[in-house]
Design a protein around this nucleic acid. Sequence first.
DNA 1: AGGTAAATCGAAACCGGTTTCGATTTACCT
DNA 2: AGGTAAATCGAAACCGGTTTCGATTTACCT
Lengths: 339, 339
Amino acid sequence: MTTIYDIAKRTGYSPTTVSKAFNNYSDVREKTRQDIIRTAQEMGYVPNSHARTLTTKKSWTIGVLFIESTGVGIRHPFFSSVIESFKQVAVSKGYALMFISKDVGGKQSGYLENCRIRGVDGVVVFLSDYEDPYFQELLDSAIPTVILDFETPKSHTVCSNNMAGAILAVDHLASLGHRKIAHISGGVSTFPGSERERGYKASMKQLGLELPDSYIVPGPYYSLENGYSAMKGLLQLPDRPTAVFASGDLLALGAVMAAKDSGFSVPTDISVIGYDDIDLAKYVTPALTTIRQDTVLLGSQAADLLFSTIDKEHEGMEALQLPVELIVRDSCAPPRSVE
Amino acid sequence: MTTIYDIAKRTGYSPTTVSKAFNNYSDVREKTRQDIIRTAQEMGYVPNSHARTLTTKKSWTIGVLFIESTGVGIRHPFFSSVIESFKQVAVSKGYALMFISKDVGGKQSGYLENCRIRGVDGVVVFLSDYEDPYFQELLDSAIPTVILDFETPKSHTVCSNNMAGAILAVDHLASLGHRKIAHISGGVSTFPGSERERGYKASMKQLGLELPDSYIVPGPYYSLENGYSAMKGLLQLPDRPTAVFASGDLLALGAVMAAKDSGFSVPTDISVIGYDDIDLAKYVTPALTTIRQDTVLLGSQAADLLFSTIDKEHEGMEALQLPVELIVRDSCAPPRSVE
DNA sequence: AGGTAAATCGAAACCGGTTTCGATTTACCT
DNA sequence: AGGTAAATCGAAACCGGTTTCGATTTACCT
């Protein structure tokens, strides 16, 4: 490995000047800089980030905290898409992304400890279990963080406007004439799930629609199979709903399958609306009406927030709520009775 | 930040001894070690990985090279699952994963350069375009690499046995009585796609089945919509196939939809078999018969290979081919004529 | 008590950069 | 020619660790 010392020897300048040349110091002559840059190229020089970090205390790395305690990566597609967009702005600013884990090399150590060992400049957090004490520890530290799909005053947070989305969904169904609208909930243990449920309830109340307890049924883990069984339950209700708002697209897909398997047609007999607008939504039959989250915006806004804090351009914590959009496709129609 | 120097001052030992205590040198007394460890805890000491890397030349980081030139993360689910498994063994060995990109901070620099700057100990590669000159540069370097879904003698490689999988698929269809078996190909530009096509052809030949050119139709990017249009084409053929082997599950799903939309029933009128066994495969109707890739094994084997090279336990390059499995569900049945 | 081997410890050099501040050189002026 | 300000450069200290090798201490033996 060639170092600035090798370049210094070859060019006759001091290591100090070589370093300055690379860092665009104003006190090195243009000719000198050119000399140094050229020899550096010839010698195949690449800077050593660890040496640089050691002195500057800046690692140009962002930790990525992504854990799905719920098991099999159901939320992976959403995460991937958000993080991809986050990564793009990170890279453009010169940062690299590094996965942070709880324990390393067999030793239990915690996120915060790993962040400190690696000297990350900030952390983007995407968890399903925000009660994790190791996460709390990180939250209480001085390391800049931005959290997705969660809200807390201790950190920047970026969410879709889940309540607004839920209201959008229910209003759409109501505008088609539905009055018996059920909800397959993402569960109150996840932040977006509880917000959407809250939005659903608020909207039902606002519209003056009846809401029996049996109309809210859990769809744990946002999984297709749980959507399926949730729908099966709803269809057996004496006062069967004419429309269902599912807290996630996979839940909705499961619900559609359950309806079909029970001999109901979607949307003629029962309408289903989902949430997320996953890739698949537009390909299934019937194409799924849903609420789209802007994953690209989610990622880039999270990045902007984090970097502005790292660069000290920004004080205090922001809680962003990003707008969502109703995507009308073929899975919702007016109820039979009104036709 | 507390350093070994702070601990040295507090305990009265030298920094040398403090460092040795942490690294389990045999020449520090047990009592001394305890002393040091305890004070370190009290003072909230965490080692500085950059300082350590600077002297030891070992960063305990693995670069992750994942680029999808084909655009929207179609292969993401597969990648996520493989990399998750890779990550688990990496973490257990004390490594962290870092995304490597081509350019950083606006400057174009290439993968190799970034690997060198960051001093990664190895790289796991998952690309769609293996012609990329920046990738070639990395391949020709001395940095240990393991490549997924590709084969080259210049690196360790780990693939599913794509040919065997394709043969398995075709044999299954043939065993049901099909003789007119078409193929929706992943395209020869991707390694797995071309291998599966090769397997398909070999199997057809082996079975003595006729293979008109029109029976192989491209399904670019493994996308659902391209599977759809590919199937539409096949269904309009004068000598319509009775079964279709699709190079990916999304292609297969698209094909099933196309068949349904054209008034054919799957599997009664036409059988469809996919490849990958994505999560969704078992939930769709009809549940998809497919070839399962063992993503967990893929990831862990890739990790084992890479770490054994990093640890110099291993010379030369290995080209692993992992077994695949036929998963029989409901999308394949005997052809009508034979019933 | 004196000697020897084993146990324990630390000084110094090193890894590859950055930054401060003083020294030297150069350009320009009268 | 001499003076001054601006331009250019480099010595030295520092970031936080690791490793070699020599020095000192301790344990144990006769």
